[in-house]
Design a binder for these strands. Sequence first.
DNA 1: CTGTTATTTCGACAAACATCGAAATATTGG
DNA 2: CCAATATTTCGATGTTTGTCGAAATAACAG
Lengths: 122, 122
Amino acid sequence: MAQGSEAIVTSLGALAHEHRLAVYRLLVARGPEGLPAGNLAETMAMPPSSLTFHLQQLLQAGLVTQRRLGRQIIYAADFANMNSLVAYLTENCCGGGQCAPVCDPTPKGDAQDETPARQRCR
Amino acid sequence: MAQGSEAIVTSLGALAHEHRLAVYRLLVARGPEGLPAGNLAETMAMPPSSLTFHLQQLLQAGLVTQRRLGRQIIYAADFANMNSLVAYLTENCCGGGQCAPVCDPTPKGDAQDETPARQRCR
DNA sequence: CTGTTATTTCGACAAACATCGAAATATTGG
DNA sequence: CCAATATTTCGATGTTTGTCGAAATAACAG
């Protein structure tokens, strides 16, 4: 119980800041291609050293990835980790179906809706 | 869009603490009936004044409600707000379906100590 | 090499957060 | 009113977070 929720607390804390949430949303919107740090700093109108501070937290929480491209460093959202976070909240922090889970958009061609009467799309 | 995320940041921050997340989970497990502050303090093995501090944050974030019953004060989880939080994360922080929604959150009401991360639908 | 660009690390500081005992505030029962 | 119970408020204190300029590192182009 304690070791699993520790990572959750880290992720929640990483997103619990105006600038970091904004940065993360930018990266989500950008997709796997990601954005270089300089671009983020300019968009956020934030000094580079401040941005780095926040990116480190997102990185440590495993919410973003980092890769080098030439002399710039590209950050991208890590969707797997956000998935875990949403899953945790839905499982542990919502009453039995009280906090309605998101309905399955079924992005790919599979049309199997055999889930046992739980998903309510509002 | 920006003013909405302010409330989200507050909610995330309220949950981004080991003790508060544990308290909130206790309240979620308890349901609308809720638990008195003293009961929470004892369960959490935490001095009452410390507990109050954390309860205030959850309260301010709108994640829990407060009501008096005799000389004790009962706290209960506010599911509507958690619903908003999960909805926000799913809508704004997950790529187009990249962050797969949760499937089948164990119909029976145990939800005690499951592995927090993995949730494969298929 | 040398200079230029992109980003991080370091250091210093203010602000916010967390902890908890002691005192204060409600509520009930006698 | 007085005592007992349940919880909060206050105050003091240590820790963590956030900010940002200056210096350091890394990569590239001549």
